[in-house]
């Protein structure tokens, strides 16, 4: 019996962690290529609104999720145009994208506020999903969750095992040197930005299609910023992002339960707990690191202008 309670808690944790994972893994790729995208929050919230609206109109969660990713991709294309092609300041452009995304999402979602639809379907394998203790955790999630874990594994494989991933990391480390070698700095960066935008949009769509299956303005509630922080504290490594997101999800669930149980601490303090716990854990993780070299991609946030 208590095994089932534990499973229920774990399922909630994974659900809270999934949007952070998807958005942060996308941002890892962007930042590994040397671009700092502070527009994640905006792309996420636009993805949530668009995803919900399209899902309601078409009746298909899959189409809605694709539309959410597409909306994030479209906004990131604008960001890429500004920062990669036109060499605009990345911080200012990213903040502008967040504000623009919040505004646009209000417009897109205006007539969908208050609507409800069934959450994304969960996997249901006869025999497996009903397994006591682990069935629902392992075999009963929705597609977003499996995708998030696949993304972490795929992101790790791409960055550390493929040639394209190597080129991407090299460009993030030193765009002048890689340009001198004839690598396509701008093309690679632009594609990375698009990938990150699509991931952020998909993370938003998860919120409005699965986590809380309705649309409310600004429903991302700062998760885009948490994802950005996760990337830094996870020292730009996909598997650490996975761990950090789960930890954050765990602390969130824990503090909700603590509030419900009424342990006497102010609710605001408990609400801050997940953030503090995540920061603490990831700082400790990055402390015991090598002495030389830099943790961050060395060209992160620096504008590249080739002269020809």
């Amino acid at each position: 019996m208590s095994l089932d309670i534990l499973q229920m808690v774990l399922v909630t944790i994974v659900a809270a962690a999934t949007p952070l994972m998807i958005a942060a893994l996308g941002e890892v790729v962007v930042e590994r290529a040397g671009v700092l995208n502070l527009g994640v929050e905006g792309m996420m919230v636009l993805g949530a609104a668009t995803g919900f609206a399209v899902a309601v109109e078409t009746g298909s969660t899959l189409v809605g999720a694709a539309a959410g990713a597409g909306a994030g991709l479209a906004l990131s294309a604008l960001f890429g145009l500004l920062t990669v092609v036109l060499s605009a300041n990345q911080v200012a452009s990213g903040l502008a994208m967040t504000i623009l995304g919040l505004g646009l999402s209000g417009l897109v979602g205006a007539s969908y506020v208050g609507l409800k639809r069934a959450p994304a379907p969960h996997l249901d394998l006869p025999g497996l999903t009903d397994l006591p203790g682990i069935g629902r955790l392992v075999f009963g999630q929705d597609g977003f969750v499996y995708f998030a874990f696949a993304l972490a594994a795929g992101g790790w494989w791409f960055l550390w095992r493929t040639r394209t991933g190597l080129i991407l990391r090299a460009i993030g480390d030193d765009h002048t040197a890689t340009h001198a070698l004839g690598l396509q700095v701008r093309t690679v960066r632009f594609r990375a930005v698009l990938f990150g935008g699509a991931c952020a949009g998909l993370a938003g769509a998860y919120l409005s299609l699965s986590y809380t299956p309705f649309w409310a303005p600004a429903m991302t509630a700062g998760r885009g910023w948490i994802a950005l922080a996760l990337v830094v504290f996870a020292s730009w490594r996909p598997l650490r992002v996975l761990a950090g997101a789960l930890l954050f999800g765990g602390a969130t669930v824990l503090q909700l339960n603590a509030q419900a149980a009424g342990i006497g601490l102010p609710g605001q303090l408990l609400s801050a707990l997940p953030y503090l716990a995540t920061i603490l854990a990831l700082v400790l993780l990055s402390l015991g690191r090598r002495q030389g070299g830099s943790l961050a991609p060395a060209s992160l946030g620096r504008v590249f202008t080739p002269h020809r």
Binding site: R163, L166, I167, R169, A170, D173, D174, T176, A177, T178, A180, L181, G182, L183, G293, S294, P297, A298
Partner: peptide, 25 residues
């Protein structure tokens, strides 16, 4: 190059692989 076109945080082999044909890995 005079000012080496090397990425500081990559290994020697990775820096070389950057410009090698695909087969050589």
């Amino acid at each position: 190059f005079q000012h080496f076109s090397l990425c500081e945080n990559l290994t020697v082999a990775e820096n070389i692989a950057l410009v090698m044909p695909r087969a050589l890995r």
